[in-house]
Design a protein around this nucleic acid. Structure first.
Lengths: 215, 215
DNA sequence: CGTTCTATCGAACATCGTTCTATTGTATCG
DNA sequence: CGATACAATAGAACGATGTTCGATAGAACG
């Protein structure tokens, strides 16, 4: 069982979601295709279990970072940890948002985030909403940024910079009257860093939360 | 071409993402499987086109709602419109976040959101980050909430309330010492409304943005 | 020894995306 | 008008995938 999940995660990490096949997994385990179905009843369950397997590490890391004086700082640290995990595991984003809180470690993570809000001066309902907002933001952004670049980039034929600059060129070629904003930020887009972008947006959200807790 | 997209969207709306098959689509169009490949080169492109086809309506609706005195109010209206669209089209969420801004109407929507930030007193970089944050939040939350409930619920065998209360019961059964937050908000969860929840989180984000623009 | 339960295996099936070739209709041109 | 090129359609065929199923072997136990 443990081996099944470990190898499944390895396959996902190495070559993305499409690489996780029952046949490929069986070959890696040196067994037959049917054997996997003894441990897992479907591919969906396999993915859920693999995702939760990874979340165990995320949870452990997140727990390390909490315990400061400021609950919002802790919230920030947890969110960052989760973001990092999804960012370099693109497959995790897609299978994290579905059924949040059904898997054991996902549930614990939800709890951990929620507990920080218990230390804030908020309504019950406000706490509930705040946690949903933070998780939704993290998963949404991370899943977006972690999407697999096209085949050419993955194979190394085209560098990430070239790929990005192709986008930039396309944006620059657009009508400036119809797309003033796109032209306005294209320079920033060209040199942007995913983690910075995530962090800046998170700060907005947490600033709003801090405002709410202070009133 | 137009008919292909219309029927593709109809299939997606009626029975979800898994229902969109080249064979099912061909049967609906009264033609052969191969014919579709004349209009579209892959299933990915079909989904992209279908998503953009829907985004045209979203964009039109969003444009109607802008033009108030307060750019942040406009931002809020656009986000709400986008949320509603994804909420009752679960398939849209998954295929919206990938390649935002490649499809024409997705690009326009990005521009429309961005233009609101042009009316705020912000750095270029701050504007760039703000737009990413808003879109990430909307798509993340909407995709999460719009996820297809299990088969039983879709078939009407189990009502949405029963489905939700099964969750609630599971949460209530958990150890109260280990999961204080979960027990804290379970009552709110039981009666929660997705749109309210989204709206509350969006307000946090926009409050943070307003704060940034005021400084 | 017989029985039951755990665990494994791989052939077989249905379905899906995709490719390929053949064919039909339709406009254009010599 | 006949020929030719091109837009468009149709469906058989291929390879890959998730899943089902029956067969089988070992272990545990009375």
């Amino acid at each position: 069982m443990e081996a099944v999940l470990t190898e499944a995660v390895a396959l996902l990490d190495e070559a993305g979601e499409s690489a996780l096949t029952f046949r490929a997994l069986a070959a890696r385990l040196g067994g037959g295709v049917g054997s996997i179905y003894w441990y897992v009843s479907s591919k969906d369950e396999l993915l859920d279990r693999a995702a939760d397997h990874v979340l165990a590490d995320v949870l452990r890391a997140a727990e390390m970072l909490t315990g400061s004086d400021d609950p919002i700082d802790d919230l920030r640290a947890i969110a960052m940890t989760l973001f990092d995990a999804i960012a370099d595991r693109p497959w995790l984003g897609a299978y994290f948002m579905r059924n949040t809180g059904v898997q054991p470690h996902g549930m614990k993570l939800y709890e951990l985030i929620g507990e920080q809000t218990l230390r804030l001066d908020l309504t019950r309902r406000e706490r509930f909403h705040a946690v949903s907002a933070v998780i939704g933001y993290v998963v949404g952004i991370a899943a977006d940024m972690g999407q697999q670049p096209p085949q050419e980039v993955r194979d190394g034929e085209v560098s990430r910079e070239d790929y990005l600059s192709r986008f930039v060129a396309q944006w620059r070629a657009m009508d400036a009257d119809q797309y003033p904003f796109v032209h306005h930020i294209v320079d920033d887009f060209e040199v942007h860093d995913d983690a910075d972008q995530f962090s800046a947006g998170l700060d907005l959200l947490l600033a709003g939360l801090r405002l709410q807790a202070g009133a």
